[in-house]
Design a protein around this nucleic acid. Structure first.
Lengths: 342, 342
DNA sequence: CTGAAAGCGCTTACAG
DNA sequence: CTGAAAGCGCTTACAG
């Protein structure tokens, strides 16, 4: 068990001062007029003995941890898992680590996580939060903490945001269903109080309004076992036998929806057409393949990390907010194509 | 913007010493014979002003960060995403945060991550690693770092492990296929050098050997685009038209396999029976539903975090290693049932 | 219980 | 460039 080597040991061995070693390691050799020869000697020896500065001490002194706090709704949700994987890779490439947590849409848990991240002195925040935490996030903004909200924003909180245009997404999807000739189009949605869901409802409502068609919206309460969600949907479809198309507002509703329709023995798209927000393996490989409103995952992740790094590495200036809205893409598959033979 | 409050401010305001405040906050009031009245006064005021000790300073002093480093193969893989979600929840409940990273099965990246975690002074490690990092992990073990390997272990590294019995998993699955009367059973697998994959191959080989059936194993190189994997499988199935059953050794191989069989127009299970390791929504809802070897996710997560906390909170004693092997469960669905009418 | 102090391992302004 | 020192914000042994 080798003893932990300290900056002091480096300095002593090389016969230079601690300050010299520290300055060289922090790239301030030139600035502080340390000769290149000496700087190289230091770097060479540091590399040789594998000296790594104690990050805790460094962080305590500088106030920087190079850790980013990532809050998602649920890391087991494919949308968030994919985004997390992409963000992690991009952050790591820029020298930042990710401390992550899931809120499971619980406001209390979200507040705890924000407090915890603060205690850990994360350098920046990437957040997909439930409502009810506006005051705390505003406080972070006020204190100029680097921060990006994604997926959904918070009413009244003015900060950096990266979202996907939910209105356009469901508008286009609903138009598509109408164009196919479906007449009774249901929207199954959850957490309407969240901005991304409100947007998805709006796009749906707008398209129907333009065609003078009535809305048929079923909201499903969120924190529930999948089985409960499936049962709720079974009840809904049984109560609405004339419904000939359905739009699921998010991936896990789509999955539960397919399960519910399967149990009821409804044939897709002959008896009911299906479209879901978010793409994944299941929708692509299902029989029939499911039409989806796909979010641009790569661009989303790139925009999020870009916006945050912009804040993290700004030279302390007052810069404009970054507010990005990306456009989702309708991927038409068989589940929403009206059969030719009626 | 409120000024950060320090332990010194608390002490001054209450007219007590810093030591008193610190001892009370660390639950050493009784031990240090501080009166309950005073202790309560301190706690009350601390709560009132919302004082939170600076964790960096605390960590620098105590050497404890209450952060656990979690290394997975890929957080976007449903198996790892699910495990991560469960571990995170259980760790948080015990006061630990999770710093996570994906290796994508890249040995160099894995080494970087281990170094990074060490720099961050994580208290403990939960690791699913690629091969080639045995020396570094052994070094951690030698230095008594709390550590648990899961999913796969490392040859020659003696430490805490939590794995699922891969031999039993594929043995039972293969037996099932044989019992159904399938004769040419292929195994599609990857990374045979990893212990969990080697075990899965073993179980398959053993079952076939007992029935004097030949093996038909196709290994797929891992770090590949999904599309490349699908194409490789298409080639395999075309090259082996007599193959009437296939066992996929892990979830993403199963997903790609369904895609490949779909493109080739092979009917399941009429033309080919399918079983995959790992369960997920896709396998459950696919037409036909796919038979799987399901890992006990909850128990797995519970065992992992339990083993680690056991190390983290032991009173510095020499305790026995924890080596847990859980049994997977064969969930028989339609994809592997031989059609009655031939 | 208090008070003063050392120490965790760094960074950095300062005088020379 | 060096050397001595302060300071980041804690914890804890020590003398009283």
């Amino acid at each position: 068990m080798k003893k932990k080597i300290l900056i002091h040991d480096i300095a002593k061995h090389l016969g230079v001062s601690i300050a010299t070693v520290s300055l060289v390691l922090n790239g301030k050799a030139r600035e502080k007029r340390i000769s290149d020869t000496l700087a190289e000697k230091v770097l060479k020896y540091v590399d040789e003995v594998g000296y790594k500065p104690n990050q805790l001490a460094k962080s305590l002194r500088t106030g920087k941890t190079h850790v980013i706090g990532l809050v998602v709704e649920d890391i087991a949700n494919p949308f968030f898992a994919t985004i997390a994987a992409l963000i992690e890779r991009k952050a790591l490439a820029r020298g930042y680590r990710i401390l992550y947590c899931s809120t499971n849409n619980d406001t209390t848990k979200a507040l705890d996580l924000l407090a915890m991240f603060e205690e850990q002195h994360v350098d920046g925040y990437i957040l997909a939060l439930p409502n009810g935490v506006e005051a705390e996030v505003s406080a972070l903004v006020r204190r100029s903490k680097p921060l990006v909200l994604f997926d959904r924003v918070l009413p009244g909180v003015l900060t950096n945001t990266v979202v996907v245009d939910g209105v356009a997404g469901t508008y286009v999807a609903t138009q598509h269903l109408l164009a196919q000739g479906f007449t009774t189009i249901a929207l199954i949605i959850t957490q309407l109080e969240q901005t991304q869901m409100a947007a998805r409802q709006q796009g749906y409502a707008q398209a129907l309004r333009e065609h003078n068609q009535p809305e048929l919206v079923q909201e499903i309460a969120f924190p529930q076992e999948p089985e409960q969600i499936v049962l709720a949907m079974q009840r809904f479809f049984e109560a609405h036998p004339t419904c000939d198309a359905v739009l699921f507002a998010t991936n896990y509703l789509g999955v539960s929806g397919l399960e519910a329709l399967g149990r009821l023995g409804r044939r897709i798209p002959e008896q009911i057409a299906v479209v879901s927000f978010d793409d994944n393996d299941l929708f692509r490989l299902y029989s029939p393949p499911v039409t989806v409103v796909a979010q641009p995952m790569e661009t989303l992740a790139e925009s999020i990390i870009g916006a945050l790094l912009n804040e993290l590495e700004r030279p302390g200036t007052t810069d404009a907010l970054v507010q990005i809205q990306l456009t989702p893409q309708l991927v038409v598959r068989q589940s929403s194509i009206r059969p030719v033979a009626l």
